[in-house]
Amino acid sequence: MVLGVLFTTASCSGLRVVDELAPLLVENNIEVNGKATQSDDDFDIMRQRPNRGIGNVRLFLSMHQIGTSLGENVIGQWFKSIGEAPAVYDSIARINSAAQLGLHYFNLGFYKTEVTTYETVKRKKVIAHYGINTGPQYTINQYSLTSTSRFIDSALTFHTPSLTSGEGIVAENLENEQLSVLNFLKNNGYYQAKLGWIYFEVDTTRGPSTSQVVCIVDPYIYGGSIERKILS
């Protein structure tokens, strides 16, 4: 019965009980190369997200506002715990989100990504807009492994790379290859091998489709023993 009365007095849009002077973020609009993004990752990157709801109905926002109006009691705390605080628009969060989108696509191999962002405001409701122009994805044309140690260099000829020609230069894939090389070294007697020994040099001067990637193992970076050991 209490719930029925409370919801009857709440705003249908979920916005009426919010401070009228506070603009609310109601949508993140993301376009990639002129089309609406199909990637959930893009939305996960957002530093600020609108309150959940269906259409103009912000049910979780309404619950939080009802809890606030009820005060510091059990019922009020319960409403606030299942609701959402108002997504008061934050322009700094929008700018930071744009920067994170640029970094995200850079890590996917789109090294010339450009991100533009702006806001539109109507009746204290804000839509944050993001336009992403990725440019071409840089791909691996040639991949090789080498080491500053001639012994490790010789051993690396038996390593099976996880990177292949034609695939994008994706940061996550490089990290996986780095771990693969480290495990290979440890499995072949270089038990003191460190992840910091392994790094990549990427040459993109010849263009997006003719990039060269070199994995370098330099055990002399940290010093210490690089002797290959055999368990007895």
Results as ranks from 00 to 15, higher is better:
residue 185 L to N: 07
residue 54 I to E: 10
residue 102 G to V: 11
residue 37 T to K: 04
residue 79 F to H: 10
residue 187 N to D: 09
residue 207 G to F: 01
residue 146 T to M: 07
residue 110 F to Q: 13
residue 227 E to D: 13
residue 125 K to P: 07
residue 140 I to M: 07
residue 125 K to D: 08
residue 134 T to F: 00
residue 45 I to Q: 12
residue 42 D to Q: 08
residue 92 I to G: 06
residue 92 I to M: 08
residue 86 P to L: 10
residue 222 Y to M: 01
residue 74 V to K: 15
residue 124 K to M: 14
residue 77 Q to A: 14
residue 205 T to F: 01
residue 231 L to Q: 13
residue 37 T to G: 10
residue 104 H to Q: 10
residue 57 V to N: 12
residue 76 G to D: 12
residue 204 T to Q: 03
residue 208 P to L: 02
residue 167 E to L: 00
residue 203 D to C: 04
residue 165 S to W: 00
residue 158 F to C: 02
residue 231 L to W: 03
residue 28 N to V: 03
residue 132 I to T: 02
residue 180 S to F: 00
residue 133 N to A: 12
residue 132 I to F: 03
residue 145 L to G: 11
residue 18 V to H: 05
residue 76 G to V: 08
residue 172 E to C: 01
residue 106 F to A: 13
residue 117 T to A: 14
residue 89 Y to D: 14
residue 189 G to R: 04
residue 43 F to C: 14
residue 84 E to V: 09
residue 198 I to V: 06
residue 158 F to S: 09
residue 112 K to E: 14
residue 116 T to P: 05
residue 202 V to M: 05
residue 72 E to T: 09
residue 102 G to D: 09
residue 96 N to D: 15
residue 77 Q to T: 10
residue 82 I to L: 13
residue 108 L to G: 11
residue 176 N to M: 00
residue 78 W to K: 14
residue 80 K to R: 15
residue 66 I to W: 12
residue 16 R to E: 15
residue 179 L to M: 10
residue 4 G to L: 11
residue 45 I to D: 09
residue 204 T to R: 07
residue 144 S to P: 02
residue 89 Y to L: 12
residue 223 G to L: 02
residue 10 A to F: 05
residue 39 S to G: 03
residue 225 S to W: 04
residue 99 A to Y: 04
residue 100 Q to F: 12
residue 62 S to V: 11
residue 210 T to E: 08
residue 65 Q to V: 01
residue 171 A to T: 04
residue 168 G to R: 06
residue 98 A to F: 09
residue 172 E to T: 02
residue 134 T to N: 04
residue 223 G to D: 00
residue 200 F to V: 00
residue 25 L to T: 13
residue 92 I to W: 08
residue 160 T to M: 00
residue 110 F to E: 08
